[in-house]
């Protein structure tokens, strides 16, 4: 039987003096994953942007539960977004969106 793929939702904080569009942000994330793990690794991650707030520098993405550490490493390796200095920090990780927002509010 086909195994159900479990997901993990990651709340992220974008640390920079600039604001970026969601496209710039996702480009930076994909580039980091591609550089570190190649196309095969990137294809396994199942990265998707769920929520993005450019003003607050806040984003929610989801990935497969097997590739959480891989995505965490790729996010940590980001030093620039659209050639502007930036850093991305993982605020919290959860198995459901509802639990993720609850954790952030706490």
């Amino acid at each position: 039987m086909l195994k159900r793929m479990r997901r993990r939702y990651l709340a992220l904080k974008i640390d920079s003096n600039e604001t970026f569009s969601s496209r710039d942000f996702m480009d930076a994330v994909w580039n980091a994953v591609l550089k570190l793990y190649g196309e095969y690794g990137a294809s396994r991650s199942g990265l998707t942007l769920i929520d993005y707030d450019a003003e607050k520098g806040f984003a929610v993405i989801h990935t497969m539960h097997t590739t959480v550490e891989m995505v965490r490493a790729a996010l940590a390796s980001i030093t620039k977004i659209r050639d502007k200095p930036a850093a991305i920090h993982v605020l919290t990780i959860s198995g459901t969106i509802r639990a993720l927002y609850k954790k952030i509010q706490q």
Partner: peptide, 17 residues
């Protein structure tokens, strides 16, 4: 500088490389 600082779990994740 500040932008090269990471949360403790992030360098730990990078060591998987």
């Amino acid at each position: 500088n500040e932008l090269l600082m990471r949360k403790p779990r992030e360098p730990a994740a990078l060591t998987s490389l």
